[in-house]
């Protein structure tokens, strides 16, 4: 028994010959806010569908709460998890109220207080049919339904889809409140790096079906630095930088290096170059992301 709420080992999945997941590894601890990042088509939604039990992996295993994600245990997982799916569609003929009553009937731990609070906060019209809701309202309703379940885990696929900036902050605030008060584990995929940077404590960047960066966000930001070296004159022979120097870019007399570790050795090496002026900068999540998912 581990204390990992979500665990994936060497997950592989192909659709019609094209690989969607190529040996994905993932570990999410209870109580963490875990950001799952990647470009379109990198495998985010496939992973979430696998964890939901909608798909079966070709090889490898996926577990939620220690239980296999597909098969008979999938129902137990669904009892304890709130989902927001990529497609924010609900039953078009049902009203907002109707959806709440319907969903409520499946979850004995339903939180009426939370449902009521979000209904007001998100300004959802109770008697409107879901087909007539705007995209943003659909997202909000789905979030309401996911959170009010009283679940231990929230799995959210692009939860801020369709939300304006103010609504996004409202949503993030509620998620943080939930995390603080109930210790809910939050696993969410997003394109919005700023949102992830704001609330995640751990992240995983997935590219072409594999995890290319994982770890605590704070640690990653401490580890990754950008070093700018300005030389006296252009070097004829390129420097063999020490380990930890990823993505070196040279333009004339300027060398820009993204460093993933071993910063002190690299700084020493840089300062030893003739007439070099060396500066270091902190690195944003966007830089880390782009450096790892750009096609080279």
């Amino acid at each position: 028994m581990t204390d990992f709420v979500i665990e994936a080992n060497e997950l592989r999945k192909s659709y019609k010959g094209a690989p969607a997941l190529n040996g994905l590894n993932l570990r999410v601890r209870a109580g963490s806010v875990y950001g799952f990042l990647g470009r379109n088509g990198a495998g985010k939604t496939t992973t979430i569908k696998l964890l939901m039990g909608l798909l079966r992996a070709d090889s490898g295993e996926a577990r939620v709460f220690g239980l296999p994600s597909d098969g008979a245990t999938s129902i137990e997982i669904h009892r304890r998890t709130g989902f927001v799916t990529e497609d924010k569609q609900m039953y078009p003929y049902m009203t907002v109220e109707g959806m709440i009553r319907f969903t409520r009937s499946f979850f004995p731990k339903w939180r009426d207080d939370l449902a009521k609070r979000y209904l007001e906060m998100f300004e959802l019209p109770p008697r409107r049919k879901t087909a007539e809701l705007s995209k943003g309202m659909q997202s909000k309703l789905m979030l309401l339904l996911a959170i009010s379940r009283g679940a231990e885990l929230l799995m959210l696929d692009e939860p801020s889809d369709g939300l304006d900036p103010a609504a996004v902050q409202d949503m993030l605030r509620e998620l943080m409140s939930l995390a603080a008060a109930e210790g809910t584990t939050i696993f969410f995929s997003s394109h919005q790096l700023a949102e992830v940077e704001q609330i995640a404590d751990h992240i995983c960047i997935i590219d072409r079906g594999r995890a290319v960066v994982t770890g605590s966000l704070d640690d990653l930001k401490c580890q990754y630095q950008r070093v700018l070296v300005i030389l006296e004159r252009e070097l004829s022979v390129p420097v063999r930088w020490v380990e930890g120097a990823e993505h070196v870019r040279q333009e004339g007399r300027t060398v820009s290096i993204l460093v993933s570790r071993n910063i002190d050795a690299l700084l020493a090496q840089a300062e030893s170059l003739p007439g070099a002026s060396v500066e270091r900068f902190p690195v944003t999540l966007q830089e880390i992301f782009l450096e790892h998912v750009r096609t080279h």
Binding site: G31, S32, Q169, S177, A179, A181, I199, D201, D218
Partner: peptide, 15 residues
């Protein structure tokens, strides 16, 4: 309090 700060600043309580 941790919870209040997390809500006011909209940041992760673990942070």
């Amino acid at each position: 309090a941790i919870r209040k700060l997390a809500e006011d600043l909209v940041m992760n309580p673990n942070t």
